[in-house]
């Protein structure tokens, strides 16, 4: 009797879930599987409106032989590692110094969050103007103090540095907000106990805050690593991948292949390479997080 009731309940639940499952299947699973199938076929929209024959792993082999794509992977990883590291470290430091409830701290937090709420395209456009070597605000300020500012977006090294800096400027507040939330879950008793034990600020940070914050740090790390690997807006609006290929990241490469040159199958294959990379990074990170947590807090 109980078994029958259970089954009936499950059936009712499934009936209610069915529309949502169908929508998900149509809107997400189908395009994903379709793009996977396209990546094994030959399809340039300019040649034909329909995909042509099966070409096996040709598109994937082509990608790994393509120096522009390999360079794009390198640039993406540099971007991802440098930007994420700075965003997490700076986000933590800012959160640490702005935690609290007085008016000025609240005001500073509100102001510090602002970059995050600007649309990335607007953000890129504003920075492109500010980094203009002639009329940009940054070089004007540098000139004011007697320094000849560099050609921020016109030289390979400084262009990559600039787009990374733009990402850091925009997304450090995200890390800050999450860390601030993390600080709030640390029980006050722990601080009190530490005070009684004579722990100073540094020791409290080392033995109480950091161990508590590490799981949250992993979440920020995961979000930012994935997000920086998928960055396109800031680069599209500032350097468009140049000068030369110095800021040409994977997402921009895929965008060009798909929407400028209409090489749909090649774009699908490179998208899948990016997705697999991203998935591997996310999985390794989650595994690492589990190991760290087990080590710190036990099983």
């Amino acid at each position: 009797m109980l078994l029958k009731k259970n089954w009936q309940e499950k059936r009712t639940l499934f009936t209610f879930l069915l529309p949502a499952i169908l929508i998900l299947l149509v809107s997400q699973a189908y395009p994903i599987l379709y793009s996977l199938s396209i990546s094994f076929r030959q399809w340039a929209l300019a040649e034909s409106l329909k995909p042509k024959g099966f070409v096996g792993f040709n598109n994937y082999i082509k990608a790994f032989k393509d120096p522009i794509f390999l360079n794009a992977i390198r640039i993406s990883f540099v971007f991802c590692i440098v930007a994420t590291s700075f965003e997490i470290i700076l986000g933590f430091i800012i959160a640490y110094f702005t935690v609290g409830e007085n008016f000025f701290l609240r005001l500073s937090r509100t102001i510090l969050i602002l970059p995050m709420v600007i649309a990335p395209v607007a953000n890129g456009t504003i920075w492109r103007m500010m980094l203009n070597s002639q009329s940009g605000l940054i070089n004007q300020l540098l000139r004011f103090i007697g320094i000849q500012g560099p050609n921020w977006l016109g030289a390979p090294g400084s262009a990559l540095f600039s787009v990374i800096a733009i990402d850091i400027w925009q997304w450090t507040p995200f890390a800050m907000v999450v860390f601030l939330a993390g600080f709030s879950i640390i029980p006050n008793e722990l601080y009190d106990a530490a005070k009684v034990d004579g722990a100073g600020r540094l020791k409290t940070l080392r033995y109480i805050i950091i161990p508590y914050i590490i799981p949250i740090g992993f979440i920020v790390l995961l979000f930012r690593l994935v997000d920086t690997l998928l960055v396109i807006d800031a680069i599209y609006t500032t350097t468009f991948g140049g000068p030369g290929f110095s800021t040409n990241v994977i997402t921009l490469f895929i965008y060009w292949q798909a929407l400028r040159y209409f090489n749909i199958s090649y774009a699908s294959a490179t998208s899948w390479i990016l997705s697999i990379f991203t998935l591997l990074i996310a999985l390794s990170l989650m595994r690492f997080q589990k190991r760290v947590q087990t080590k710190m807090w036990g099983a």
């Binding site: 030289a155 991948g241 140049g242 000068p243 030369g244």
Partner: peptide
Amino acid sequence: EAQDYFASVLGEFGL
């Protein structure tokens, strides 16, 4: 595609 690539390589030459 051919022109974009050409422009990028010429950019590298300019640098």
